[in-house]
Design a protein around this nucleic acid. Structure first.
Lengths: 212, 212, 212, 212
DNA sequence: AATGAATGAGCTTTCATTCAT
DNA sequence: GATGAATGAAAGCTCATTCAT
């Protein structure tokens, strides 16, 4: 009995290792520098081996895509403990930034490229469950904020879109290396993290002012 | 003397023609679909000819990058006529969206990819002049808004960063095809343009509320 | 003792099952579409298992080759009942056509490819017994026809070769899909079976005229 | 002026060289052992170079296919001088055999494989002109034989099909190496050429007897 | 006896780039 | 000034085969 289970576990471990390597390569080399051969080299296996665990390159990308959303939701999980919705909202932003900053390659894959979307768009809605969950969490939190007097008169869905746009913009500018090239940031030696923190703080202040 | 100058002029014309074609291709195909052969075919010259005018593919990308910023500034030019800074600010957003929507390939190249940045970062600050101009225009406008009572107590540079993050986030989500996949948008048949308009309107409303 | 024999029997059964699946695959897919994996999948065993029963792919092909000849002879078996040799000869042709048409993949393997031959040529004459039987049956029938006044003055072995060439030509043209591409057949919508029947009938008529 | 022409000639020579090598490889290795890499190696160029002269592998196969038919017709050309149709018919057979024997690889490609057919079948009828010409030449010759009293009462098209089947059968058995394995031929040390000659002679005799 | 895991060698194809002409 | 010709390097992928378990 144990044998079968161990095999299954080994198999899963190998899949994970492959995905982890791909993940790592995204980080180092960027989305289109990734190749089956690259991954194979990284895990020190032959390219053919990859195909024992994934049907094709697409399936790898797909898996990373889904794993990415799961991971994002994991970053959101601890936020439930914040009872004040506005507090929670602000923490969500921080968690999102943390996720993007720590997993730039996967973030790129999830939100900054159109290629994966073309494949994924054929999929069942089911595939989007994790992605939906994340967004719904945001919408709910916004709605709760409104019931406490924030963002009065604004549509919660649209306002959530706005928030997401901002935070995605900030994260993606960082990942695409544009953050450090803005006039002002370029000259002074401010760290990228500081820029993000400052910008996010500004956004938070603005949100705060939208109360009442 | 005249000969030398004419030659130089011819050379510049050829460079422009190549860039124009590349720009056009970006419009149709997107960043990774572009190739030297593609461009050569479009201008009806041989691939080898391109190398007479550009050292390598990077140099083309680089040039497009710079031209892109010029083009963006051209979109901003007519905004000078808006005397009310807040009006001007809102129009800037629209102009930015227009630029991004009409030149998705170039936008992708300018703001959504890290590869070009890596090459550009070695360059002189001089290279960034056009980019800086665009951002400074935003900062100035924000500052003028503040002198009229908007965004009180917020740092103009940071607030500009926030605005840019938002608008870039919105545009890049559209270009990367993610806009249509958000829960809600996916089911209803809202057009992407409508989503952008709505989200931007929400943002404008929010900004408006930050007066006083 | 019994154990050893049972094992041997089991082994033989497995070999047969593998061959049967391969045969089936040939029927559906044709010579080059076949792979060890294909066969393994069909018998629901792992590819590695196949190597327990056959040294390599060649050995499988070889075995199919031999089985093919057995099957061909089985098609000939019922012909013994035709007492008139010329009738029997004509029925042999029909039986051959039936065999080829119903087992195109195996026919291809047996008669249309050189690869298998290269391996087989090292083999003992013994290996050819079944093949020889089939041809000898033809030669005998021809000889009997001659004793009834047909094909006078023609060498039976050569005449048999001639007959085989014709019938093989007809069958192989069909299997290689050339039959439908001849001028005339291509335009009209005659079925391949009709072309074969007609051509064979013409041949029969010609043979008939060679009497006396 | 001469430059352009020379270039064109060089280009044609290269194409020919590639085709010749492919032709040669067919001969040595058989149809499916052929690969772009193989050909490239044979002509001592890089694989990529092949793609400068042919769009893809298919185009090479296609070209060989067409060239083959042209070559076959060239073998038929000198036969016009035979005024007696029956003589011409017999010479046609010999010419066909000569063509097949000297170009086994191409013959295999032209008549013994189904893969090329699948691609070619989509083509215009125009593509088949050369093939049609060859077959029509046969039908005409048969018809002329009939006007001289041969093959009375037989349909010329069907009878031509019969002749082609025979001669193709004979040639293809030789090419697929089956000719030497027939009982009788195997034991005695008769050369393959002798077998072919003898079998063809027997066929000729039979045809002769179909007069009157 | 059976197999999961692994791989080397092979495939077709594309592309940025160089260089002799 | 322009290019046809050539290529090295890389891509995704498949398959027959081996071997430890």
């Amino acid at each position: 009995m144990g044998v079968k289970e161990r095999k299954e576990r080994d198999r899963q471990e190998m899949r994970d290792q492959i995905l982890k390597s791909a993940h790592q390569l995204f980080l180092e080399k960027g989305f289109d520098q990734i190749s089956i051969r690259n991954i194979a080299e990284a895990i020190e296996y032959s390219p053919a081996t990859i195909y024992l665990y994934f049907k094709d390159k697409n399936e790898i990308v797909h898996a990373l895509h889904q794993d990415g959303f799961k991971l994002l939701n994991q970053h959101f999980q601890p936020l439930a403990k914040f009872e004040q919705p506005f507090e929670r909202l602000k923490e969500m932003g921080k968690a999102y930034i943390k996720f993007a900053t720590e997993n730039p390659g996967v973030y790129e894959l999830m939100f900054m490229r159109s290629e994966p979307m073309e494949h994924v768009s054929d999929c069942l809605d089911e595939e989007w469950r994790e992605g939906d969950r994340a967004f719904e969490f945001l919408v709910e939190t916004v709605a709760q904020c409104q019931s406490q007097g924030y963002f009065k008169g604004l549509h919660p869905h649209s306002f959530s879109m706005m928030i997401w746009s901002f935070i995605h913009g900030l994260c993606s500018l960082r990942i695409s290396q544009h953050l450090g090239h803005v006039k002002g940031a370029r000259e002074s030696k401010i760290s990228l993290d500081d820029i993000m923190t400052t910008t996010y703080a500004t956004f938070s202040q603005a949100l705060e002012k939208l109360k009442g």
